[in-house]
Design a protein around this nucleic acid. Structure first.
Length: 231
DNA sequence: CGCTGATCATAC
DNA sequence: GTATGATCAGCG
């Protein structure tokens, strides 16, 4: 896209930028910065996330762990219903299918990425034309102790299944907060793993996702204090 | 109609 | 293929 926006030098600057977006529609903002936008997300699933990244000065296409490495903050847009509930799960990270021996929760990418997240709610009802969907008030979140425990427990259970090569037993129904689901171009994609006998196999790539019930609590817990609140 | 499994785009 | 950003689609 365009608009070269420098990375925010401080948390305050990042939050100020994010707050300035609240209340405006994607179309209004895209117009103001002369960015072309798709009619819908059908073939542009990551468009909103990439657009917000650029508006806030995240380094696009980076391989860094977080979007704002220097601030230790991960950016996530989240589609919200009229009732303020998440409409989609939140992808966190690709699940390593090998090399999990000796890996702990504290060392994991999931833990690292979820230490501090700046959530940007965006209206996500499919009946609302993409350009008319409004951006909401940003939420800077870090897991509570209870949430942290929940995440760790799920991560350990899911990672254990991977380590044991129990891929037949893995499905999206496991886990209270976190779940494992396919993450790839399509169902034919394969990646390296080890089966229950420790033998090399090729299997479907998986990713860790946050369930809507979990992200909903993040939004619910967030205290709104004044009239300058959207969504 | 919520949720799981499948899928889309892009950079390297 | 991996890693970034996610949402689509249709079964139960």
């Amino acid at each position: 896209m365009i608009e070269l926006i420098s990375p925010p030098k401080s948390l305050d600057i990042l939050l100020a930028r994010a707050n300035q977006l609240a209340g405006y529609s994607l179309g209004e903002i895209a117009d103001s910065v002369n960015v072309d936008m798709p009619l819908n997300l059908n073939k542009h699933k990551g468009w909103v996330g990439n657009f917000i990244e650029q508006l806030l000065g995240a380094t696009a296409g980076s391989k860094a762990e977080q979007d704002f490495t220097h601030l230790n903050i991960e950016l996530k847009t989240i589609p919200i219903s009229h009732q303020g509930k998440p409409l989609e799960t939140t992808f966190v990270a690709l699940a390593p299918l090998t090399g999990n021996v000796g890996l702990t929760w504290q060392m994991s990418h999931v833990h690292n990425k979820l230490q501090q997240v700046l959530w940007i709610p965006v209206e996500g009802e499919r009946e609302i034309p993409l350009k008319d969907r409004k951006i909401g008030t940003p939420i800077l979140w870090s897991p509570t102790q209870a949430q942290e425990r929940m995440l760790q427990q799920d991560w350990e259970e899911l990672t254990e299944l991977i380590s044991l090569g129990q891929f037949d037993a893995i499905n999206a129904r496991i886990g209270v907060a976190l779940q494992l689901r396919p993450k790839g171009a399509n169902s034919k994609v394969r990646t390296d793993a080890f089966d229950s006998n420790g033998l090399p196999i090729k299997t479907l790539p998986l990713g860790f996702y946050l369930r809507n019930s979990f992200t909903h609590t993040i939004i619910t817990d967030h205290v709104r204090n004044d009239s300058n609140t959207y969504l």
